[in-house]
């Protein structure tokens, strides 16, 4: 009788210890930007990857911000393995040692990828633009650049901007007549920052701010705003799928690359490398633009894209004629000070 009880207790304690072992505690976790694009990523990449590798893949989503990555990196295991980060998050996180510094021999060669896709700690996931999106029903004439975005007389109605300085200061300077190539030289001076905020001040009473990428389209749809900054894919989707009468302006749009990074404290580094490599397979990447109007990083896949689809892509020559590349180095050095400045300005 006693020995039976002992057996049960021994079994129970072994089971309890087994349940707390870290390796068994969670599955490989991929974190991306959420929304319909992540649903597509899941279909095109995550699910086939899980099948090929024979492991469960959990996909989580986040709203970006280096702070949460620092918090995750400060834990023994933050629960995230591979994350789609914005370009300056890649730079900061890499500087601070939050991510694995990539061994390029374990990745596809740089010659197979769109230039700029490979960075010290990241491999390009998507190329996309912040564009001016507008409600073509509410506006009698179509806006053609950021100058029009700041013209309250000719283009009445409220406007929405992302509630953080990145991109908005560049937009304000271009609206004030600075050529795209001179934007960062201007913004690197105190006078340039003042000029950008003064320009934003001129339409402040007509501005509202968005936080997550779904909001701009929702604000356009509800009539809350007539113009907004938005990711190009969200506007094209609203036109394509929801038959909205919206337009978008490629001229002076801001281009950026999101990268996949591996958290340094990930217990799945080998699997993560495999994920990064598999993501660049042309046969998978070519499926993306048909579902979502987004720039892809595999050169071989880009050649196979249908011309009718190409017109909605940031990588089409016509759309890429006059765009500004977001400058990571600038944002790495200025992100904290300008975020505080932005908080002060927007809260006044």
């Amino acid at each position: 009788m006693h020995s039976r009880l002992f057996q049960i207790l021994a079994f129970a304690s072994v089971a309890a210890i087994g349940a707390t072992l870290p390796a068994a505690a969670r599955d490989f976790t991929v974190v991306a930007g959420g929304g319909s694009f992540q649903a597509l990523q899941k279909e095109v990449f995550f699910a086939p990857f899980a099948k090929d590798a024979g492991v469960p893949v959990v996909d989580d989503s986040w709203d970006n911000g280096i702070g949460i990555l620092r918090a995750k990196a400060a834990m023994p295991d933050g629960g995230w393995d591979v994350i789609q980060v914005e370009s300056e998050e890649q730079q900061i996180g890499c500087d601070e040692g939050l991510f694995v510094e990539l061994d390029t021999s374990r990745l596809p060669p740089a010659s197979a990828l769109v230039p700029g896709s490979l960075s010290h700690c990241g491999v390009g996931a998507i190329i996309y633009n912040f564009v001016l999106g507008y409600d073509a029903t509410a506006l009698k004439t179509a806006p053609k650049d950021w100058k029009d975005f700041f013209d309250l007389q000719a283009f009445p109605g409220k406007r929405a901007l992302r509630g953080s300085p990145k991109g908005n200061l560049e937009i304000a300077l271009m609206a004030d007549g600075v050529a795209p190539k001179d934007v960062y030289a201007t913004l690197s001076t105190d006078a340039g920052v003042e000029r950008a905020f003064a320009k934003l001040d001129s339409i402040k009473s007509s501005l509202i701010f968005w936080k997550s990428g779904a909001q701009p389209i929702q604000m356009l749809s509800s009539g809350e705003v007539t113009m907004t900054t938005s990711y190009n894919g969200r506007v094209t989707n609203a036109v394509r799928n929801d038959k909205k009468n919206f337009g978008l302006v490629w001229n002076q749009s801001l281009q950026t690359v999101d990268s996949w990074v591996i958290m340094k404290n990930s217990p799945f580094v080998d699997l993560a490398y495999r994920f990064l490599k598999d993501y660049q397979k042309p046969e998978r990447q070519k499926l993306l633009p048909a579902g979502q109007p987004i720039g892809i990083t595999s050169l071989a896949a880009l050649k196979e894209i249908d011309p009718s689809v190409l017109t909605d892509l940031p990588t089409s020559p016509a759309n890429a004629a006059n765009v500004l590349q977001l400058d990571d180095r600038f944002w790495v050095d200025n992100t904290d000070a300008l975020t505080a400045r932005w908080a002060a300005w927007s809260g006044q």
Partner: peptide, 21 residues
């Protein structure tokens, strides 16, 4: 609007947004 954000929004911004703990 931006002028109606409470201090909690800024605590959250500096905690998870910019990491200025």
């Amino acid at each position: 609007g931006p002028a109606d954000q409470t201090i909690g929004a800024y605590i959250s911004l500096f905690t998870t947004g910019t990491g200025n703990w």
